[in-house]
Design a protein around this nucleic acid. Structure first.
Lengths: 190, 190
DNA sequence: CTATAAGTGTACAGATCGGTTCTCTTTGTC
DNA sequence: GACAAAGAGAACCGATCTGTACACTTATAG
């Protein structure tokens, strides 16, 4: 089952939007970079906004699959996996295609909270939160919600800091802070 | 010494860029909103990019003045002022004009690290870091740089989380995490 | 073979983009 | 009151924006 033209288009649009931004990317650029005709693009997606939403859906799927899998590979206890979140982040930051968080950037370009693109970006963050909170609960935290929020603040802070490039190693700083928070919430490691 | 036309223009451009985004705001919109003629705008600023840079300079000045002053008002010890950072943030988040961090959004729309706008946004973060690191040193931290980075990760994480609007009270979560980090770095409060 | 669907390529519409040019009016100063 | 500087207002330029129209080519299935 080879990928359909539609899937190829979305995958390529995802790359270009991520690299170049949403407003700054025109449909003509997508035609040039994807090799798919404008006619086909507008047959699959009625508007640019629809294409952006599809790109974000794919990104959400890819990113969560990658992150959750990587956290499970790196550790086999809930607590270890929470710490591994920041190891995975540091790997991501080192990729030369790293350009920050696509959802933060999407919500920055489409600011109104009720805008479909903004809303979908927020949904991605909610899904991450729910995963991390469940892990925190499994790890035995008394306040899994609070611990999850704290860790995700460090994560998003590190993501934007790594993208702005004014700090040496934001992933390491986040990992260090996370270790302290984990110890405060769960006690010292065995 | 009344404000010059130029200052009025920059102040208004700052508002519109902050509310509406950079690419999404056209010069015609600025003409309409500021009541200043296009001729004058282009006499003061050769390009839109120059106007954006001037807006960011003003924002940097306003924001640091406000934040540093507020932290000093809220506490009189270095440690207390570091904690007060998150009280000030929570006040900011509650303003109905709150739209996230203008510098994060600027670096999201102008992604290349060597782009003047991206570079200037990073400079703002560096100035904040330097202030917080000095406070951490005055508070007696063994690793002021590390403590400052950790606190600023929480701060930027809270800022983007508050803007995306998927969490109840990111400022409170950040304040709670910061309290733990401060205790770990500086020992229990007297 | 043929009917149908999917895709290509290109020209185009109407609006808006950043930026320029022009004329006319206001404003402050000696 | 004369004069220069600054600003207003609007037309305009070429480029680009999202989205459409149309004529042509491929691929697939009965």
């Amino acid at each position: 089952m080879r990928p359909t033209k539609r899937d190829e288009l979305v995958a390529k649009a995802l790359q270009v939007f991520y690299r170049n931004g949403f407003h700054a990317t025109g449909m003509d650029m997508l035609v040039a970079e994807s090799g798919i005709s404008k006619t086909s693009m507008y047959k699959h997606f009625r508007t640019k906004e629809d294409l952006i939403l599809a790109s974000l859906r794919l990104r959400d799927e890819n990113f969560r699959n990658w992150l959750f899998r990587r956290m499970e590979e790196l550790a086999d206890t809930p607590r270890g996996q929470l710490a591994a979140l920041f190891v995975a982040l540091s790997e991501w930051f080192r990729e030369d295609t790293y350009r920050g968080c696509m959802f933060i950037k999407a919500s920055a370009e489409f600011q109104e909270a009720d805008h479909p693109i903004h809303a979908q970006a927020a949904e991605h963050k909610r899904l991450l939160f729910s995963f991390v909170r469940d892990l925190a609960a499994k790890a035995g935290a008394k306040d899994p919600t609070g611990l999850a929020y704290s860790l995700l603040l460090l994560k998003d802070g590190a993501i934007v800091t790594a993208h702005m490039g004014y700090a040496d190693d934001p992933a390491a700083a986040a990992a260090h802070a996370a270790e302290i928070l984990l110890e405060a919430a769960l006690g010292p490691v065995n």
